[in-house]
């Protein structure tokens, strides 16, 4: 039977993924045999455990909590990033004023604030949100300010020639141009937001999948630890992919140049 080019493409992709999976499984089994301890379970037992995990309603609740924290933290952080980014990009004084503090905060890994946060406000969902917002705003602010500064001179000139009002300049030129740079920042900081919610769960026990992972680890449920890590990988991949798709849809000109 002859295959159409499209079908052939799908078959090829399927074959490649099967090969990837096969090789990964083989490597995993080799590693499990070498380590040969309960802490490195075999693939089949992990997959079984993974099935049990996704049948569990508590897991889904945890997942939703994690998502909620990620989204709230991301939105708050993004708002801050836009305010700070616009301010630093449009005013030289403010740039000098703020950049040293922003850079100092950026070079501190956010997790070192966790002990402080847990001591002062406890290990609640709010703690995770505050930390996530901080991480997102510090990551995104650079993209926002770069996006404003990289606006094409000629576009600004044309706005001047045709006497566009400030408002229409912002809507038609600055914002679209900004978004083509910032969309990359969105993608990266969404992944970071997710990572931060998980980190805060693992380190201080804020609600969500991170805390569940930590419990599994301290209860020596080794299969569970692996299952959670696989789940986190899947969610991480999905977040990245979603933002990629959005980027391709909305920022079509950037992708196609």
């Amino acid at each position: 039977m002859k295959l159409l080019p499209v079908q052939r493409k799908f078959v090829n992709i399927g074959q490649n993924y099967a090969l990837t999976f096969g090789i990964t499984a083989a490597l995993w089994e080799c590693a499990a045999l070498t380590v040969n301890s309960r802490s490195f379970p075999h693939l089949n037992s992990v997959l079984l455990d993974l099935l049990n995990l996704i049948k569990n309603i508590d897991f889904w609740k945890s997942l939703i909590v994690t998502f909620n924290l990620t989204i709230i933290g991301f939105v708050i952080g993004a708002l801050f990033a836009f305010a700070l980014g616009l301010a630093t990009a449009l005013n030289k004084r403010l740039n000098l004023l703020l950049s040293s503090s922003i850079n100092f905060l950026r070079s501190i890994p956010s997790v070192v604030f966790l002990p402080l946060l847990v001591a002062s406000i406890g290990a609640s969902a709010r703690t995770a949100i505050i930390l996530t917002a901080l991480v997102v705003s510090l990551k995104l602010v650079i993209f926002v300010s770069r996006g404003v500064l990289e606006t094409e001179m000629e576009h600004i000139e044309f706005a001047k020639i045709y006497h566009l009002s400030t408002f229409s300049k912002i809507c038609n030129i600055y914002i679209p141009s900004l978004f083509s740079v910032v969309s990359t920042g969105f993608r990266l900081s969404a992944s970071r937001a997710f990572g931060t919610v998980i980190a805060s769960g693992i380190i201080i026990g804020t609600p969500g999948l991170g805390r569940d992972l930590l419990f599994a680890e301290s209860n020596a449920e080794y299969e569970r630890v692996f299952s959670y890590v696989i789940i986190l990988g899947i969610v991480g991949t999905l977040i990245y992919a979603t933002f990629n798709v959005i980027e391709r849809q909305f920022i079509h000109w950037r992708v196609n140049i």
Binding site: V111, S191, F194, G195, I198, A199, I202, I203, G210, L213, L214, E217, V225, F226, Y228, V229, L232, G233, I234, G236, T237, Y240
Partner: peptide, 10 residues
């Protein structure tokens, strides 16, 4: 894609 902190317990 796995958050780097989540790899630590593993």
């Amino acid at each position: 894609s796995i958050p780097s902190v989540a790899k630590v317990p593993l």
